[in-house]
Design a protein around this nucleic acid. Sequence first.
DNA 1: AAAAATAATAGTATTGATTATTAATATTGT
DNA 2: ACAATATTAATAATCAATACTATTATTTTT
Lengths: 135, 135
Amino acid sequence: MKKQRNTAQKRLIMDALMAADHPTATELYECVHELNPHISKATVFRVLSQYSDNGEVRRLHITGSDDRFDATTAPHAHLRCAYCGRIKDVMFPELEPVFSAESVDGYKIYSAEVDFLSCCPECAAAGTDKGAYKN
Amino acid sequence: MKKQRNTAQKRLIMDALMAADHPTATELYECVHELNPHISKATVFRVLSQYSDNGEVRRLHITGSDDRFDATTAPHAHLRCAYCGRIKDVMFPELEPVFSAESVDGYKIYSAEVDFLSCCPECAAAGTDKGAYKN
DNA sequence: AAAAATAATAGTATTGATTATTAATATTGT
DNA sequence: ACAATATTAATAATCAATACTATTATTTTT
């Protein structure tokens, strides 16, 4: 792998990612663009992919949305509200064996992604829950 | 929800989906197009979305690929080989509590998706495994 | 069994996220 | 400072997914 350099753009993008909440690349671009209107969209995509390849950032493949990015690297699952779209990090004991699996059916495991489609308390309180399968 | 009709196109698409192995919509379109060259790409996307909204089909958002579709509705996780891209359905006892969770942190759970990034036995044997984080 | 109402389709155009390209700029090692 | 290498901005290109629309198929009503 090519040696990587530390640039102002990368720092800006990483800082914005840590401040943001599971943004898509495009959302992060908009965010970063306000701080430095000169930054390119392609740079955001490239830097995120680079960090993701390193394992410094996790790329989330959430159904029904573009890829999202997460600066939290400790093992955790995601709760996504089907109605308002918010995503919450979550960890509980039953997930432990899933994230620590090293081999399954002869496949060597590198990492696991666990996503729950759900209804958040706020949307439930607002009566938004239709019990849908929608995804 | 609108009442749904059972059409020749839908049957064709569903049959092809069950015969195929976690295809993307485009792959499925190509497959179906050979049997009926008159069928429209938009129809494949529409029918798959319809089934997915019903819960008859699961939509998978897999890293580095377009959405894929799975006709198997019983709870199961996916093993994806980081090198050859193959996807294998898998179920083991430790996953049971994950798929049967009904509520977490006040979020009401509708469904769970579990995906393992891995190296399949064939790619491991071929020495392809680089232990990568790549996704 | 027509007519009316509704759903689905084919074909095409459009959208929008992501990737490729390339010339210019910045960073690092010597 | 110089040479080698990595990074970037800006733009163009790609391609999955969606929107649109006129037409066709199916169901329901009369």
